[in-house]
């Protein structure tokens, strides 16, 4: 059964514009549509009327690239848990619903246009140390380092992060610690990451701070919003790694 909805969408020309909500009515919404397909439909209607389309980031539309964002009715990626916006379907909504759509809001995530934000701060955090320094061709045989299944599963759980930024969007302090902790956890659990372990956490946290993200106050909103269900215990690990790193460096020459 198709239905009608009202959309309140944040429109902002550019980083320098102040932005405002604009209201749109949309009819004939099919419950089988994905949320983004619903926005596609709106955009076609806008474009046919010669009006500017709503800009939003998206690419794979299967929940893995991390491009889509959208703060839907007060929740990053909308009402379904463990789901990205692109995998959210309109059957979750009903006739007459009013849906607020906002961009991720955080100081480091500047609005580029409408619902598109600049998440390059995440790239800079990874560039600060979210890697293992191994040049191409320097590797040993893959089975030379056995890694127990429990450990490798734990590393995988953290590595599943898609870098979408929902954690920042959800946190009342716009903290990026879940994102940072996921990478730190992955590389600190795996033996390959050990040589740079403490240097890495120190550098990544430092860049995270410079970018202007807020601080964790242990309220778990990030975990609840994460489409890949990254656990907040990673933040605890991040703290531990950071403390050990600083204590070690204080006592080393």
């Amino acid at each position: 059964m198709n239905f009608s909805i009202t959309l309140k969408i944040w429109r902002q020309k550019s980083e320098f514009d102040t932005g405002r909500f604009v209201s749109y009515n949309l009819d004939h919404v099919s419950p089988d549509m994905s949320f983004l397909e619903m926005l596609d439909t709106l955009n076609v209607q806008l474009e046919e009327k010669g009006k500017e389309t709503v800009a939003f980031d998206h690419d794979c539309r299967e929940g893995i690239c991390g491009a889509c964002s959208l703060y839907i009715n007060g929740e990053p990626h909308g009402p379904d848990r463990g789901t990205t916006t692109c995998q959210l379907h309109m059957r979750r909504f009903k006739e007459g619903d009013v849906i607020y759509i906002e961009p991720w809001r955080a100081k480091p995530f500047k609005v580029v246009k409408d619902l598109v934000v600049d998440r390059s701060s995440f790239d800079r955090i990874i560039q600060a140390g979210g890697y293992i320094s191994v040049n191409t061709g320097n590797a040993r045989d893959a089975n030379a380092i056995p890694i127990g299944k429990t450990k490798s599963d734990l590393a995988f759980d953290a590595a599943a992060c898609i870098g979408c930024g929902a954690c920042v969007a959800a946190c009342k302090n716009a903290s990026a610690m879940l994102f940072v902790s996921a990478k730190v956890t992955q590389l600190s659990i795996l033996p390959q990451g050990h040589p740079e372990r403490y240097d890495r956490v120190s550098k990544m946290v430092s860049v995270m701070d410079q970018e202007g993200f807020g601080n964790c106050t242990n309220e778990g909103e990030c975990e609840a919003a994460c489409p890949k269900e990254i656990k907040k215990e990673n933040i605890s690990r991040l703290n531990r790694e950071f403390i050990v790193s600083k204590v070690k460096s204080a006592f080393s020459s």
Binding site: Y71, E102, K107, N173, A174, G212, G214, E219, A224
Partner: peptide, 21 residues
């Protein structure tokens, strides 16, 4: 203060999902 600064523009609508109390 820093945490407030990290989100200069507030959301129009927010919902609590985690353990916010």
């Amino acid at each position: 203060v820093r945490n407030k600064k990290a989100r200069p523009v507030e959301y129009a609508m927010t919902q609590s999902l985690g353990e916010k109390s």
